[in-house]
Computed example of a mutant assay.
Amino acid sequence: MKLTTDELNVLNYSDIFFSCYSDNERGCWGLVEDHTLVYVCSGEMFLQEAQHTIKIRRGECVFLRKDHRVSLTKQPKGKEKFIGISLVFKRAFLRKFYQTIDKKKLPLQVRKHTPSIIRLPQTPAITSLFQSMLPYFDTSTQPTDRIIDMKLHEGIYALLDIDEQFYPSLFDFTDPWKIDILGFMEKNYAYDLSIEDIAHYTGRSLATFKRDFKKVSDLSPQKWLMEKRLNVAQDKLLHEKKKVSEIYLEVGFKNISHFSTAYKRKFGYSPSNATAL
Results as ranks from 00 to 15, higher is better:
K2D: 14
T5N: 15
E7P: 06
N9D: 12
N12Y: 05
F18V: 10
S19G: 13
S19T: 14
S22K: 13
N24H: 13
E25K: 10
E25F: 08
L31K: 10
H35L: 06
L37I: 08
V38Y: 13
C41R: 09
I56S: 14
R65K: 15
R65W: 08
K66E: 13
H68D: 13
H68Q: 12
K77Y: 09
K81M: 11
G84K: 09
V88C: 06
R91Y: 06
A92M: 05
L94F: 06
R95H: 11
K103V: 09
K104Y: 04
K112E: 14
T114M: 09
P115A: 12
L120F: 11
P124D: 09
S128D: 13
S128G: 09
F130D: 10
Q131F: 03
M133S: 14
L134G: 02
D138N: 06
M150D: 03
M150A: 03
I156D: 00
A158C: 09
A158T: 09
L159S: 11
L160T: 00
E164P: 01
Q165V: 04
P168I: 12
S169V: 05
D172F: 07
I179Q: 15
D180A: 12
F184T: 02
E186M: 02
E196P: 03
I198C: 02
H200M: 12
T202S: 04
L206C: 04
F213A: 06
K214G: 06
L219N: 03
E227K: 06
L230P: 00
N231R: 01
V232W: 03
A233K: 00
D235I: 03
D235M: 05
I247D: 01
F253Y: 14
N255E: 07
H258N: 09
K264A: 10
F267W: 00
G268A: 00
N273T: 08
A274Q: 04
